[in-house]
Design a protein around this nucleic acid. Structure first.
Lengths: 233, 233
DNA sequence: ATCATTTTATTTGCATGCAAAATAATCAAT
DNA sequence: ATTGATTATTTTGCATGCAAATAAAATGAT
């Protein structure tokens, strides 16, 4: 497992940014990072270029700066994900899916049911992501799939954002049930070739995350997914 | 005008790819490009990384390859643009726009009318892009605006694709009139705060490009925008 | 103190050298 | 001829040196 230098720099910097360790507005200097990380500037620069393309860094005439996110950016990113996932499932419904694909989806639904009962949030996360990926893949558009996945690049916009924490919280538990009900509606809509229904459900499903963000903010929970978001003005 | 080396490499390579001079599947070697372009490998590598992030190149374990586009990728990219522009104008309609913004839009509409009459396709292109940018900007979501602009990165998906050529062609002239009618409908929907109408018109407006692609393909026109698309299977 | 100007220190953009990896070429054996 | 092993060539990934650009510090003027 050759651990390329630029990759480890990329992963390290990205995790520092999304964890909030590097707050918005921080200037990142290749020469300085090179010293602290003990690797040369060339692979650091590569990592910085890629992080800029991901939208986590902004480049001005001299140097990179960690991007600041306001709360409305969070909502916009969530809505963007809903829009793109919606387009994907709408197309999936229109073209129809195979029996085996439907069986796979139903297996995933059942698995998610059991992890909700068992309360294992880590497993829920993983299965939830798997279901979303599976649903998206059914649209048979490489370009659309790539854009849906790209919309997950900000941690607060990923489908697995917020539900993962505070599993003993009632409101959170309710949102799990609602979300899972929407998953079932989504699969049903696709199976029945109801494209616009599938679209609407996916958009609304993403909107669940709005409520979770609001809850996290008003409870002043230090949610890891919100670490890279600036204090509200 | 400081002409950075990596920028000129980026522009040069990008234009070679979108013009079809470099066809899909071609392998791009930094060392070789360095010699032919007379600049060192470092800025070449930067350009290649950025082109990969743009989706024009694919990187396998060793080296970059020019991406191949099939015809269905073209339609998918056009639909993606329609979806994102649609989301932007829907939001614009929902939040409402200022009087001055509406005046600006109407000025652009009138300008487009006159260039259609005068038949200057280059001017049409520029004004059409300007109108689309203006419309998109009204959604007041930095994140959405960025994604709409990103959806223009493949030349065949940009709003100014196909209409620019064969201005003496009847079918093409008709599509200009239809497109401009849709522009007016779009502005009217936004002014009237009719969000879902605006969305639907934007999606349909992008679909005009489908017909232009079909026409270009069946006429075997060597359309510059289709240069990077592979021969149909 | 505030601001402008010069000086000093960093930092970036680019070139290039080099080892490790990958590709291409050569040859051997079936 | 095809396959496999060996060698030669190219290419990448990384390190690093250097000039030009940028930021920071120091100095001086009001």
């Amino acid at each position: 497992m050759s651990e390329l230098q630029w990759k480890s720099a990329l992963y390290h910097l990205r995790s520092q940014i999304v964890s909030g360790e590097l707050i918005g507005g921080t200037k990142l200097r290749a020469s300085h990072l090179s010293e602290t990380m003990g690797i040369s500037r060339t692979p650091i620069s590569e990592a910085l270029i890629k992080l800029e393309a991901e939208g986590l860094l902004i480049k001005d005439k001299s140097g990179y700066t960690v991007r600041s996110f306001a709360l409305n950016d969070v909502f916009d990113a969530i809505d963007l994900r809903g829009l793109l996932e919606g387009a994907a499932v709408q197309r999936a419904a229109q073209i129809g899916i195979s029996d085996t694909a439907l069986t796979d989806l139903e297996t995933l639904l059942a698995d998610i049911d059991s992890v909700i009962e068992s309360g294992s949030v880590a497993d829920y996360d993983q299965l939830n992501i798997a279901l979303h990926k599976q649903l998206t893949s059914l649209c048979e558009s490489e370009i659309l799939i790539a854009e849906v996945n790209r919309s997950y690049r900000f941690p607060f916009a990923s489908p697995s954002a917020f539900p993962t924490r505070n599993s003993d919280n009632k409101r959170f538990l309710a949102s799990l049930y609602v979300g899972q009900a929407q998953h079932r509606q989504l699969v049903s809509a696709i199976a029945n070739r109801e494209g616009s229904r599938a679209f609407a459900i996916a958009v609304e499903h993403a909107r669940l995350a709005h409520a979770n963000v609001h809850a996290a903010v008003s409870a002043r929970e230090s949610s890891p997914q919100l670490a890279l978001v600036n204090a509200a003005p």
